[in-house]
Nucleic acid binder design. Structure first.
Lengths: 293, 293
DNA sequence: GGGCATCGATACCCCGCAGGTATCGATGCG
DNA sequence: CGCATCGATACCTGCGGGGTATCGATGCCC
C-alpha cells in the first residue's frame, strides 16, 4: 500500500464525496475513482458503498480510515524528524517543540521552562499553544516533541508519560451566583443547575454533541460565557490563579482528580527531550516534598 | 514520502550495501541508487555517507531508519487490519490473534483462554508463540491483536496495557549443584557463579552481545544447557511448574519483580479484544482476592 | 411523470518516471 | 600496477498515474 493511495482514501472517506475529495487533493475526479478502485482490488476488500447519490464507509473502510490516518501520521513524523535531525547535526540546534492547551497549567509550564533553561546543555524550547484535542495529533505526526496533557481529559494512549501534578477541580461560575458563597459542592449539585448548563466542547472532527449548553472552542470564550451568566464549568483548580474578577470558584469535592502529565512519542532518542523530562519529574517530586534537605 | 521510498531506504540502511539491498528488494542496483538520491533530494537531507567501498548512516539517516520502520509497520498494520475487518464483516469471524513468548505464563494463558471462551460472544483466539522480542513487532504491524508481555523484560512503549500478575524470580540450575539446596539467594550470589554463566540472548537485530555465557534462542535450548551444567538463568517463578526433573530452582530475593501484562495497540476498537481484556483483568483481580463473595 | 442536475464510472490519450542494461570512475587489495 | 568491487551515470522502455470527454444512474422539482 502506498502513502499516495492512503491519502486518497482518507480524503474520500472524510468527504464521502469523490468530487470534493478530488478538489481537496488538487486533482480530477476520474483518476481518484480509479485509484480507490485499484486500492480495493489490491486489498481484495470493499471499502466504500457507493450509489450515484451517496457514498458510505463499509466496516472495513472505517477501519482503514482510522488505521490509515495513524499510518500517515507516522510517515509524516518520519519525514519531519529526519529533517530536524539533519538540522541538529548541522549545528542549527532546532530546540524542542512543546505543545499544551492554551490557558492551562501556566504556572507549571513557566516553572518548567525556567528550571530547564537553567540546566547545563539546555536547548531552546518553542511553546505551541493549540486548541483542545490538537496536541495528540501534533505529537503523533512529528510537529511537536513533547506535550503537557491533562488526564482524564486527554488521551495518552500510544505515548510515554510521566505524571507531574495532581489537583482537584473547581466549579467556575458568575461572581453573583447564589452558589458562589458555598465552601464546597458535589457533582450532583453541579449537574442540577438548570440555569447554568455545562458548555459543549467540539469533538475530534469539529462537530458538537447535542445538549442544552452553549458551544465553546477555547477557554477565553468559555470564561466570557460564564461571566455573562450563560454557563458554568468545572476546571482544574490551577485555573483559579488567572481568573477574571467577575468569576467565582467553588471546590467540587467528588469531581475526578486531574493529573498533568508530560508526554512524548515512544522510542524518542533525543538527549534534549530526556533532559526536559528529567527536569519536569524532578520539579514535580520537589513540589511534593518542599522540605527536602 | 512514499512507502516504496521508505522500504528502499530501510533495506539499504540495514544492509549498508546497495547491491545486497537491491537483491533483497528484487530489483537492480542502479534504480535503487537513484531512488535513494531522489529521497535525499526531496528531504533536502543527506542520509548516507558513501564512498565506493563503504556506506554509513548519517545522524539523520539513523533517525529515518528508526522512524521509517515504525511508519512501515503502521502501514502494514492498516493493510492487515482492514483485510481482517472485511473478513469479520463477511461473517468469517477471524477471531483474535494472541501472541506470547514460548514457554512463559502458560497457566495464566490457559486460565485466560478458558475463562474467555466461557464468556457470551467470545470469538476464537489463535495463540501464536514466538521468539523472544518478536511480540512487539507482531503487535505493531497488525499480525497480532493482543500480547502477553513481561515487564521489565519486554518494552511496552506505544501500547495500552493492563497489569495481570506480579511474581518474583527464581534461579534455575542443575539439580546437583551445591546452591540447589539453599532456601534463597541474592543477585550478588548469582552473578558470582563463575562455573554457571548467564546465557546471552539475541538482540533485536539477531546479533549477540559479548560475554562468557552460551548463546541461546529459546527456552528449550536454555533448559537443555542448564541441565548440561553449562549455564544458569533467572526466570519468573511461574516457570517452575513446567520444569524438567533434572533442574532445581531457588528464589532470588532481590531480583526485580516480573509483571505479566496484557498489551494491545492503542485505538483498537474491536469488541472481541475489549472482551478478552476485560476477562483478563477480572481474572487477575479475582486471583488477588480469592475470598470474594 | 418527465426533464434536469448531480455524481460516480468508463473510455481514451499522453507523458513522467520507475526499472532495466551497459558502462564509467573511484578505491582498496594483492 | 593490475584487478576486483561497488556506487554513480547514461540511456532506453513500458507501465501507470493523471488528464479530458462522456456515459449512465438516481434523486428532485415543477
Amino acid at each position: 500500500m502506498e502513502t499516495r493511495e492512503l491519502r486518497y482514501f482518507v480524503a474520500v472517506a472524510e468527504e464521502l464525496h469523490f468530487g470534493r475529495a478530488a478538489q481537496r487533493l488538487g486533482m480530477a475526479q476520474p483518476p481518484l475513482s480509479r485509484a480507490i478502485q485499484q486500492l480495493e482490488r489490491r486489498l481484495g476488500v470493499s471499502l466504500l458503498d457507493r450509489t450515484s447519490r451517496t457514498v458510505t464507509l463499509t466496516e472495513a473502510g472505517s477501519v482503514l480510515l482510522r488505521e490509515g490516518r495513524a499510518a500517515l501520521d507516522a510517515v509524516d513524523a518520519a519525514d519531519r524528524r529526519t529533517r530536524r535531525a539533519a538540522l541538529a547535526a548541522n549545528g542549527d540546534s532546532p530546540g524542542l517543540v512543546l505543545v499544551t492547551k492554551a490557558g492551562a497549567s501556566s504556572e507549571l509550564l513557566a516553572e518548567l521552562l525556567d528550571a530547564y533553561a537553567a540546566e547545563p546543555g539546555a536547548v531552546a524550547v518553542d511553546v505551541v499553544l493549540c486548541g483542545i484535542g490538537q496536541q495528540e495529533r501534533l505529537l503523533r505526526d512529528g510537529r511537536a516533541d513533547v506535550a503537557l496533557l491533562h488526564r482524564p481529559y486527554d488521551s495518552t494512549t500510544g505515548f510515554d508519560t510521566e505524571d507531574l501534578t495532581t489537583e482537584g477541580q473547581v466549579l467556575i461560575l458568575p461572581a453573583g451566583h447564589p452558589l458562589a458563597g458555598r465552601a464546597h459542592l458535589r457533582m450532583a449539585d453541579v449537574t442540577a443547575l438548570p440555569d447554568l448548563p455545562m458548555p459543549r466542547w467540539p469533538r475530534r472532527d469539529g462537530t458538537y454533541p447535542d445538549g442544552p449548553g452553549p458551544e465553546v472552542r477555547d477557554h477565553a470564550q468559555l470564561l466570557q460565557l460564564i461571566a455573562l451568566g450563560r454557563a458554568a464549568a468545572v476546571l482544574p483548580e490551577s485555573a483559579r490563579t488567572h481568573l477574571r474578577r467577575d468569576l467565582a470558584t467553588v471546590p467540587v469535592l467528588d469531581a475526578p482528580q486531574v493529573t498533568t502529565v508530560i508526554a512524548w512519542p515512544p522510542h524518542s532518542r533525543s538527549r534534549a527531550l530526556a533532559g526536559l523530562v528529567r527536569t519536569a519529574t524532578a520539579l514535580a517530586a520537589a513540589s511534593l516534598e518542599p522540605a527536602s534537605p
